[in-house]
């Protein structure tokens, strides 16, 4: 369960990115966060994975108050979240395998377990045959699949995706969406920020619409 209580976020004094946002997302839900550029979609997600702290209000994930977490606790929160970005954010000097293995390595998992889990996940996204390649040797769609694999390899409690298909063509977008649907079916809560109306139409789910930092619509699936 994700809960936002009267959350405000301002980067500068007179420029609020989020204003008095309150919402609840039950466990296992699939939610689109939509709105025009500058509406506050990315800010909302950043608050969830504690890359930003709210100016006011409280955020709870599974009963844990994210706003009160110290910098030592934040890595342990992030180990339960899978995060996918529009620009993939892969480690370009490491192979596909190493990129996907990294979240498991930092958790101190055994090498055998890491190898097995990474292979399974790469198979899931259809890239097991390219595990020794570097990210920059892959197409944009493949790189995003690697990023999704990196997010899925930890069986995340919450899968957070910030415009994950923004740089991809429609065909690849469908592939990525299938991966998110699969993760959701396996129990992960999915929060996906997008302004792709076609995608929302094809995969109808709950929609939270933001505008100028305010929640203007909460439309159920």
């Amino acid at each position: 369960m994700i809960q936002f209580y009267n959350v405000c976020k301002s980067y500068k004094k007179d420029a609020a990115a989020l204003i008095d946002l309150s919402l609840k997302i039950p466990k296992g839900d699939f939610v689109y966060i939509t709105g025009p550029s500058g509406a506050g979609k990315s800010t909302l997600l950043k608050l969830l994975y504690a890359a930003e702290k709210p100016t006011r209000g409280q955020i709870l994930i599974n009963g844990q108050n994210v706003t009160r977490m110290g910098s030592r606790q934040i890595p342990f929160l992030r180990r339960r979240l899978g995060i996918v970005f529009q620009d993939f954010k892969l480690l370009n000097t490491r192979t596909v395998f190493e990129n996907v293995a990294f979240p498991l390595e930092i958790q101190g998992r055994k090498r055998m377990e890491v190898g097995k889990k990474v292979f399974q996940t790469l198979k899931l996204v259809g890239l097991e045959h390219k595990m020794n390649r570097l990210p920059l040797e892959l197409s944009g769609g493949e790189q995003q699949r690697v990023a999704v694999a990196r997010a899925l390899v930890i069986d995340p409690l919450v899968l957070i995706a910030d415009e994950p298909t923004g740089n991809l063509d429609p065909e690849v977008t469908l592939e990525i969406m299938e991966l998110f649907k699969g993760a959701n079916a396996r129990g992960s809560t999915v929060l996906l920020a997008t302004h792709d109306r076609e995608m929302i139409r094809r995969f109808p789910k709950r929609v939270l619409a933001l505008e100028h930092g305010r929640l203007i619509e909460d439309r159920p699936a």
């Binding site: 890595p75 992030r78 954010k89 930092i106």
Partner: peptide, 16 residues
């Protein structure tokens, strides 16, 4: 710096 940022985002501790 991008590499350092990504490491932090996937849950690596500062020490790690």
């Amino acid at each position: 710096r991008d590499e350092l940022e990504v490491m932090g985002l996937v849950g690596a501790t500062s020490m790690f």
